Amino acid sequence: MILQDVFKKNTENTRQYIYRVLRENIMNLNLKPGEAIREIELSGILNVSRTPLREAIVQLIEEKLLEVFPQRGSFVSKINLNLVEEAVFVRELCEIKIIKMACQKENIEELINKLEKNIEYQKIVLNFNQDLHEFFILDNEFHYLIFDYFNKKYSWKAIKRLSTHYDRLRLLDALEKTNIKITLEQHIKIVELIKSKNIKKLENHIEKHLLNYRDVIKKYELKYPEYFCNK
């Protein structure tokens, strides 16, 4: 097991440190869905005792990112397609609402400028074939910018906590380079529709945008069957 970003921040206690490192490595797919988590090995890698490690593991179990099986041990949760659908359901409702707010508000040049700047960075990542983790981060930032503009940062945070399985699937999709160009084109279209205040087309476009993965989910289930479950 090789973990990324194992430095400890000055503001973190030991449990927070362990939780952050494990969660980040799960969410960036460095720790794969279904991968075993061995406490003794983790204690050695992170140089921590077993008590805060177990506390962090319990927190990740509550967030459905780790699972424990008797006599077998702890494992990274597989991508649960039911949880993916639930996250999309909530996110679609919230995103359509926030997009309507953008269309109904006058003088949103500041937001448009931020969105278009984000899109230019997305183009750079794709044109130079850089780390597609970076494209995924920019994709998330694109949507966050709208929530932030309307002072709904905590709503976005709640969405992200519910979207851990959906986001791992989205990252897998980005790394496979299946929908990244489509995603970029859809972001450009979203900005155009906000400018034109075409709410009806935006609703349909947001739904299509959030459901890109459905067109390729069978491909991923065949390629990575060990990553997925339905319950």
Rank of each mutant, 00 (worst) to 15 (best):
K32M: 06
K105T: 15
K157N: 12
I194Q: 09
I37K: 00
K8C: 13
K177R: 13
I137E: 15
N204C: 07
L42G: 09
N10F: 13
I206E: 10
I79E: 04
L171G: 08
K218R: 09
E92V: 01
A36H: 01
H205W: 08
R214W: 05
E109K: 15
K157T: 07
C94F: 11
V76C: 03
P225H: 08
V84K: 03
I194Y: 11
E203Y: 04
D148F: 08
S155F: 06
I112Y: 08
R161G: 13
E203P: 02
K105S: 15
L132I: 09
K100C: 14
N179G: 03
N212A: 07
I96H: 06
H205Q: 06
N113V: 05
L29R: 08
F228Y: 13
L93D: 11
E92R: 05
K153Q: 05
Q130T: 04
L66W: 01
K197D: 02
E41A: 09
E185W: 03
F69W: 06
L126Q: 03
I2C: 04
I37T: 00
I26Y: 07
T178K: 11
H143D: 06
N25H: 03
N127A: 11
L65T: 01
L83Q: 05
N129C: 08
V84Y: 00
F69E: 10
N127R: 10
E221Q: 10
L172D: 05
E192G: 10
E41M: 00
H165A: 13
V90G: 02
N204Q: 12
L81N: 01
Q104G: 14
L83W: 05
V216K: 10
I40N: 08
I45K: 12
I45W: 09
D215I: 03
Q122E: 15
K78C: 01
N230F: 10
P33M: 02
K231D: 13
L29I: 02
K160Y: 09
F142D: 06
A36N: 00
Q16T: 12
Y17P: 06
R38C: 00
A87V: 01
I159D: 07
N204A: 08
Y144T: 04
M1Y: 10
R38V: 02
K100S: 14
E207W: 07
E39C: 04
L53R: 05
L162Q: 15
V125N: 08
C103N: 12
L53I: 03
T14F: 12
Q59H: 09
K197A: 03
E226N: 14
I26L: 09
S49L: 10
